[in-house]
Every structure is written in structure tokens, then in C-alpha cells.
Amino acid sequence: MSIQHFRVALIPFFAAFCLPVFAHPETLVKVKDAEDQLGARVGYIELDLNSGKILESFRPEERFPMMSTFKVLLCGAVLSRVDAGQEQLGRRIHYSQNDLVEYSPVTEKHLTDGMTVRELCSAAITMSDNTAANLLLTTIGGPKELTAFLHNMGDHVTRLDRWEPELNEAIPNDERDTTMPAAMATTLRKLLTGELLTLASRQQLIDWMEADKVAGPLLRSALPAGWFIADKSGAGERGSRGIIAALGPDGKPSRIVVIYTTGSQATMDERNRQIAEIGASLIKHW
């Protein structure tokens, strides 16, 4: 067993022997301040990774656009098919120029040779490549099948209805392509620590998230040296922004954090800054 596999296998073990965790309302004060600064709703939840206990939450059962955070769930569904012998990570998928959609920095470079399922998941999570996500959605049967996968996990809230990039439209009061912070946090925890996926697939999923290259201005910008984070960000229309993450000190994750916002007129930089400040408060009061 590799060191990384050992780390993920012992996530519940280490967490069980940690000192009790206590909620700190100071972080919620910052979440509410972010709402004021952005002029928009902000949803927040913080779960203990081992027990699933909610440590703090704000608007945990209000719907927010998922945006690209759905790509972690998508690759979880792909990995479940791999575990069941219905898919192979090494299978190569070929596609054409007509398949390319807006923001496809990886797939646009491989029109000639195609990409493997493993490479597509890596591109979808680490670079948020939209064509990679659409190609992977095709392998599982489309958005409705991802929703069905989530329902089978016990998540009857999260739903995907459309493809990239239309799913980022974020129309107010439109339930399409949305989740709730509580539902997303619980589902992410199941994917990373539950028995739904094999140990190898859980490790692969967290490795992809740990290698995320496009979430630097968010929670990662607030992390002290030595902290662990595996995350996936999302951005959408109407001032929408979000991030889902597993993080913790001492090089291992111990909490799940989900943050979503929508309806702001603020710039992307300002949305990023507010999420980073929430992260800084979380870490300060850990």
C-alpha cells in the first residue's frame, strides 16, 4: 500500500482519535458579512469528516447552483462504474471539434489522439474542462443518470439537468442544476469515506481534487503551510461562485467545507476574496 493510499485508508482512524471539535460562531459572522459585502445569498456548511456531524452552517438547506462543483460527483459516478466493471479508466475516447464547448483548455489539445477516461476526469476536476465533463456525462448516460446515481446514494436534493455550459445559467428560483450545502457536503463525505467506492477509487477521487489547479484564489489562499486540501470550485452566471473541499491540518483532511453564493453584482475577484476570507476565519478558529 502506498503512503497516499495509507493516508486515505486511515482518515477515519486518525479522526477518531482527534480531540473533540467545537464550532466557532466567528466564522458564521464572516459568512454573514460576506453576504453584506456581496449583496447576495451565501450558503455555508462545515462537517466533521469522521462523524458527519454538522459543526457550523448557514442557509444549509437553500438551493444554490452547483456550477462546476458537480464534476466531482460526476467522476465519482464514473469511478463507481469502474468498480462495477462497467468502465475502464484506460479506455480512450475520441471526439471532434464539434464536441468542444466553451472553456476546454485540455480537451482542445487532444482532438487528434483523444483522451482516456482517467485523463478526462483529471481534466474535468483539476482544470474544470467543460468538454471533458460533457464527454464523461455521455459515458454514464447524461445528466439524468448522474441525478439517479445521487438518488441511489441517498441524495434526493442534488440534481443535474443540463450539460456544460448551460448548467451554469443560475436563474433565480430555478431548481435545475442545483444542490443544497448540506446535501453536497453529505454526498461528498460519502464519496470520500464511505463504502460506495473502493479504496482505490476513493484515493483516485481525492487525488484529482488535491491536484486542483484553478481554485488557488479561494480556500487555498488562506491555508497555512502543512495543511491538506482537496477541492473543486465552480463559477456561473449572475454572480455565482462555489467551492467544495476536504481539508485539515497535519497533512490530512478532517472536515468537509461547502460554500456557495449566487445573485451578486460583485466582480469575480471580490467573490473570490470573500470566500478566501471565510476560509481564513475557519482556519483561525479551527
Rank of each mutant, 00 (worst) to 15 (best):
286 W>K: 02
66 M>P: 01
194 G>P: 10
3 I>N: 13
62 E>I: 06
109 K>P: 07
96 S>P: 07
277 E>M: 10
202 R>T: 14
69 T>A: 03
223 L>K: 07
149 F>Q: 07
198 T>P: 07
224 P>F: 03
198 T>L: 09
140 I>W: 03
265 Q>D: 12
249 P>H: 07
172 P>V: 12
44 Y>R: 00
221 S>Q: 12
268 M>F: 11
185 A>L: 02
122 S>I: 14
102 E>T: 13
114 G>E: 04
40 A>S: 10
181 P>G: 04
103 Y>L: 04
186 T>Q: 13
151 H>C: 10
38 L>V: 07
39 G>I: 09
35 E>A: 07
119 E>Q: 14
78 V>C: 05
182 A>L: 15
250 D>Y: 12
17 F>Y: 11
213 K>Q: 14
48 D>P: 02
279 G>I: 04
217 P>Y: 07
168 N>V: 06
126 T>E: 11
149 F>H: 08
181 P>I: 04
61 E>D: 15
25 P>R: 08
252 K>S: 13
252 K>I: 11
174 D>P: 02
122 S>R: 13
246 A>G: 06
51 S>N: 10
187 T>H: 05
39 G>Y: 10
79 L>Y: 02
22 F>I: 07
197 L>C: 05
15 A>E: 04
27 T>Y: 02
66 M>Q: 06
114 G>T: 04
106 V>T: 07
151 H>R: 15
262 T>H: 14
191 L>E: 03
218 L>G: 04
125 I>K: 00
194 G>F: 09
196 L>Q: 15
198 T>E: 11
94 H>V: 13
97 Q>S: 14
94 H>W: 13
52 G>E: 07
165 P>W: 05
180 M>W: 11
136 L>F: 00
195 E>T: 12
266 A>P: 04
137 L>Y: 09
66 M>G: 06
112 T>D: 15
31 V>L: 11
231 D>V: 04
277 E>D: 11
174 D>W: 02
215 A>D: 02
56 E>W: 05
235 A>S: 08
168 N>P: 02
240 S>E: 09
272 N>G: 05
86 Q>V: 14
206 I>Y: 15
188 L>C: 09
212 D>T: 06
83 D>I: 03
57 S>E: 13
81 R>C: 05
42 V>M: 10
215 A>C: 04
187 T>I: 08
141 G>R: 06
109 K>T: 12
54 I>W: 08
220 R>I: 03
